[in-house]
Structure formats: C-alpha cells, structure tokens
Amino acid sequence: MPATAAEIRTQSSPLAGLLGACHPLPAAAVTLLTAVLALAVGRPLPGAALAVAAVAAGQLSVGWCNDRVDLRRDLATGRTDKPLVAGTVTPRAVAAAALGALLLCVPLSLAAGPRAGAVHLAGVAAAWAYNLRLKSTTASWLPYALGFGLLPAFITLPLPGHPWPPPWLTAAAALLGAGAHFANVLPDIEGDRATGVRGLPQRLGVRRSAALGALLVLGSTAALVVGPPGPVSPYGWALLAVTLAPLLLAGRRLGGRFPFHATLAVAGADVALLVAELR
C-alpha cells in the first residue's frame, strides 16, 4: 500500500525533500554527460570542472522550478511521490533554491567565456520557458531540443579557436533532447490532460507519443553513427542495432518510467560511441 503524505513527511528530512524536488536522475545524467564530453574534447580539468558546475547549477534550477510551478497540478492529481505534495519541503524553500541555483549558474556559465556562457544560459532560459509556459503548447518539445542541442557548443566554444561543434553532433543532441521530452511525459499524460496541460505529447496521446519519442532517440543514435567522416565502426553499427531493442520495448511498456530510463540508457551508449570517435 502506498505511503500517505503524512507518513512520507515523517520519514523524510527537508534536505531530502529538496533533493527529491530537483529531479535528481535527469539532473545527474545531464551533468555526467557534460563531464564526459568536456574531458573527451580536451578541456583542461579546471575548465571542465567549471562547465560541470555550471550545468549542475542550471539543472538544479530547472528541476526545482518545475516542481514549484507544477505544485497545484501535482496536488490535484495526488502525486504524493513529489516532495512538495508530501510536505517534506516547503514551496518557499523550493522557489528560493531554484532562484539561488539560477543566480549561481550565470557566473559559472560566463566563466567559460562570453559566447559559451551565452549559449548555455540560452539553454537554461529555454528550460525555464518550458516550465513557465511552453509545456502547455505544441512547442513543448522545442526547449528540450534547444537545451540539449546547445550543450555541445557550451563544451567546444572555450577550446582554442572557439570552434562550434559539428552539425551532426548538434543534431544528435537536439534529437535526443526532443526524444527525452516525449519519453519523460508518457506516464503523466492522462493526469496532465486532466489539469489542463496540453503540450504536444498530451495532444498526440500515449501511443503516438511513444512511437515519436522512440524515433527521435533512434535518429539521435543514427546521427552519431553516420555523421562523423570516415567509415562507421563495428561498435557504431552494433549500437544502432541494439538501440532498437529498448526503444521497441519502450513503445510496448507504456506504463511507469521505463521509456525514460531506456532513453537514458541509449544516451549513455551514445556518449560511449562519441568518446571513442573523439579520441
């Protein structure tokens, strides 16, 4: 039997509630991706650490903002898995944490240089725009595509010569971000509809959103496999084939967070391929 809000409140500390409200799994995944990419492209350790700190601050601000903005809808749908609904952390504390992380993100981002900093802050601004308005429009996918698509540029622009990432890498990141949006929303589509959230996945419905999300993630892997110059490695072909398995399962197992976790697994395999190609 699920725990009641009162039981969760007595078992959790405010700090644990604050941590749970930041969407820790996706925040950690994006931050880890940043660290791997920064080291793979040859960023010096101090610069790589600053980039990781900037992305971590941005992700924390976005996660806390999301839970605070969604509080009314989460209460309406009985989301006792959310710390704000369970009462383990106060709305004021989450709002303050979101703004504090956002303020910290600005100097950390600009420490990478004005162009790189502006690129990262544009991605963070897109994520905040999603939370505050765009999640209920047909453009709900756009902040994800923009935020993920700009991340490689934040990593490469501080390098000597200030190079932009190759188009295939930007495309792969943007497709992955858009696919992650569809996969992440799937379990909540019915509740979102009931509370007035009408983003693109909610308008398409569960089955079509699952199929589109799977295709977007597959397209991301394909861009990484065939985009770089030269012959495709055996690992690349194997990854492209293996990617089909979790995505097909994601399309069948529509309940729970399996589609989103499958997307994260594919993203990890994609990063391994990218690191191998950059070495």
Rank of each mutant, 00 (worst) to 15 (best):
L186R: 11
Y130Q: 05
G149D: 07
G78H: 04
L264G: 09
S209T: 12
P201R: 07
V52G: 03
L84K: 07
T31R: 00
G100R: 08
V206A: 15
L71D: 10
L150R: 11
L110F: 14
A265R: 10
F148A: 15
A56N: 05
A54P: 11
G117N: 14
A265E: 12
V225K: 04
C22M: 15
L75H: 08
L108I: 11
L33Q: 10
D70I: 13
R9D: 08
L108V: 08
N131K: 13
S109E: 06
V225R: 02
L19W: 05
A276T: 06
A101C: 15
P152H: 07
L249N: 12
T90E: 04
A245M: 06
T195R: 01
A223G: 03
T263A: 14
L108T: 08
V62H: 01
R252F: 01
G161T: 03
A267R: 01
P44V: 07
L157S: 14
A178T: 09
V85D: 07
H120E: 15
A145H: 06
V94C: 07
A98S: 14
P83W: 02
A194D: 11
V85R: 06
A178Y: 04
P166E: 07
P44G: 06
A28H: 02
V197K: 01
V217R: 00
G199E: 00
Y144D: 12
V185G: 06
R68A: 15
C65T: 15
F258K: 08
A86W: 00
A265F: 13
A211K: 08
D270P: 03
C65A: 15
A118H: 11
C22A: 15
S13W: 00
D67P: 05
A49I: 08
A214D: 10
G177P: 10
A126S: 12
V266D: 06
L212N: 04
L25W: 04
S109A: 15
L216V: 09
F258Q: 09
A93Y: 00
N184H: 12
A118N: 14
T10A: 15
P259T: 08
L244T: 08
P91R: 03
Q59Y: 04
R208G: 09
L240Y: 01
L71R: 12
A174Y: 00
H261P: 04
A223D: 02
E277M: 07
A250D: 07
A28S: 13
L273I: 11
T170I: 09
V225P: 04
L71I: 11
A211P: 05
G117C: 13
L215M: 13
R207Q: 14
A3W: 04
A129D: 09
G191A: 09
F182V: 11
W128S: 09
L240P: 00
W128Y: 10
V275N: 00
S233R: 06
A245T: 09
V217D: 01
G78F: 07
L157I: 14
C105L: 12
A211H: 11
